[in-house]
Amino acid sequence: MLQNLWKWLIIPLIMLGIGAAVVIYTVNNPTDSIVARMLTYERVFRVIREHMALLLVSMIGATIVGVLGGIMLSRPKLYYIGRVAENIVNIGQTVPSLAVLALFYTVLGLGFRVAVFALFIYSILPILRNTFAGIDGVERSIVEAARGMGMNPFRVLTKIELPIAFPIIVAGIRTAIVINVGAATLATFIGGGGLGDLIVTGLSVHRDMIIFTGAVIAAITAIFLDYMIGKVEERVVRWT
């Protein structure tokens, strides 16, 4: 058991270790005074905190709305709307994240809340699509057997359809998180803060070290969260 726990923790710990090492090294070994001024622990932790806030708030909202929306569209009465919505979502997904941010900026203005809202909208898409596709993909015979044995529609959804679609829904959430971590670095352009602050600052003062720090933390965050969700999924899904 303890050994398993170690196996479980070793990769995330290595990832966190690399992240911490990069931060400690770059903060303590600035190449010049500009880097020293821009890259302090205080600033790094602030942007990480902002980034996580952007990520968490938008992802929680997107997961709730995406999953519930996907379920609703998969119901027989809305099914044909669901097929249309799936295609619209697929088209929506091709709009670049920067364009989405810019769009919301022109309508809603600047700030953290606008950035969260834009990320939220953008992250709904893969979750909604996968939830719909996951439920839609449950074999008809399985649903028919469940109904024929006397399960009511709500039980069929919660006991049969959702558990079988679960891996696909989780895959949608993972996709959304990875996209979200990247897209959240753009929030800085509309005053949303986050790791993008470091990257954009680094770009404007031509200091690669600052860009590098921001980029590494963002990449590690994406890999870390994707890995953790994958592990949780493995735990839950034991039947494949």
Binding site: S141, I142, V143, E144, A145, R147, G148, G150, I164, F166
Partner: peptide, 21 residues
């Protein structure tokens, strides 16, 4: 219909076993 079905055994060709159980 739910009560009715609970008292009627039902077997189909595709069997329809629940793969996650």
């Amino acid at each position: 219909p739910i009560k009715l079905r609970l008292d009627i055994g039902y077997v189909i060709q595709e069997i329809g076993l629940f793969p996650h159980m």
